[in-house]
Design a protein around this nucleic acid. Sequence first.
RNA 1: GGCCCCAUCGACUAGCGGCCCAGGUCGUAGCCCUCUCAAGGCUAAAACACGGGUUCGAAUCCCGUUGGGGCCA
Length: 467
Amino acid sequence: METRVRFAPSPTGALHIGGGHTALFNWLKARHDGGKFVLRIEDTDRERSTKEYEETIMSGLRWLGLDWDEGPDVGGAFGPYRQSERADIYIEHAERLLSEGVAYRDGGAVLFRVPRDSDLSFDDEVYGHIDASSEGMKERNAADSLKDIVMIKSDGTPTYNYAVVIDDRLMNVTHVIRGEDHISNTPKQILLYRAFGWTPPRFAHLPMILGKDKKKLSKRHGATSVYEYRDMGYMPDSMFNFLALLGWSGGGAGSSQGSENTEIFTRAAAAAAFDLKDVTRKPAVFDFDKLNYINQEHLKRLDPMVRLEMVKPFWREMGLPAGDGQKRDDAWLADALTLMGGRGRTAKELAEFSDYYLSFEPVKARLSTGELTIPDSEKLRGFMSALLAVPDWTDSALEAEARSWVEKEGGKMKDYAMPLRFALTGMRVSPGIFEVAAHLGRDEVRSRLNYFLPGLPGLPGLPGLAK
RNA sequence: GGCCCCAUCGACUAGCGGCCCAGGUCGUAGCCCUCUCAAGGCUAAAACACGGGUUCGAAUCCCGUUGGGGCCA
């Protein structure tokens, strides 16, 4: 039988980390099995559900790279895919149980009469056998606890536990994969499946994601929506990778052999390796350090031109000219970013650390605060002049010149390299400064040096300096 | 309060009775490299919650305690 899984968010907010995590595992299951991933919108709460949030959730999923095969936007053979459009279906099925005498009306509501001594156990693909029908429970059931299950509320809308059963069944869902917080709903739902004479799907619950304080992830832990991560400069590949590692060890986490770090992987590799058997049961703490590391790794592996596109929005946000018609073309900018090496863990940091490639303005601004100073000494001027006169404008030639100059004049390399760095980047840290200088080009370097040390001797007209 | 779930280094985890005085990854510390910071290389510190069993032998099985999480009220 073809695997069919679903992600069923309520459009009452943006796609949050927990939702993304659940969607991701469903996607993994579908793609591994070559099955179908269904998106269903659970918008029975008309008060809080909005079309905007529905859109936001969908674009959040797309951003993560999770595509669905059926859903409100793409349609499918089992629609409609919004609960608000399925009201008739819920009523119809409620009437069926009504006519069979296993449900009854109370006020405007329809309730399912739970049979005494019901078996409340089930087998979870992740948690194994779960049995809620304990002795103590049974005793109280006789009294009050075995409450009948509301299916349709008096306002005519279906309850969550009822609608989810109808929808999952009618959409031929084979595996219900959702957060562990739904474990306790499962027995009720199984009761409903039985009432209809249906075989329940397989259930697989996923561990919760917790904040640093081990509490369920919420606003007070900081960013919770996937868009906030995008805006912070995290990449979709990284978020996917990171989320997949939370509660799943099959991606290579823990495998003790091999020298390669197998915790960095692509969507395709994860899908190929995925198995519900490898899902963990312990709640997992969201760890920013690890996210940062994963993002950095993906950033390093990115194709240079793709990386450039990733960084551009952040440059623009900083007011830097990263659009078309710049004096530097994309290839040059991409090379500049490659030069950054592993510096910067997010696209945003990368942008911040590399602003001096786009413009001299931020450099001037930083130097003007006086925090960084370029000593105006004869020696330094001599050094700068010597550098500018290097015939072959490459990083190795520049470095060789610098070394021989230092050897001749005494002092330490950093006594010259640091002021050079300040003058060119306005920063205390940067890639190798000779590489930066080489990439900026002789003209740009000369003009930047002259800004801070006006009248460097012998510049104009030096042979070989044209261009 | 009732019920359910969980329990290995700070974090994510491997482990499914002997291969474990517990392995990998992130983080942390130190060293190397070095014009700075990263990156990279090497090294180190760091865990089986506790108490009972079962067994020749337990991180692995059972019971209890404690702790954490969740659902319902």
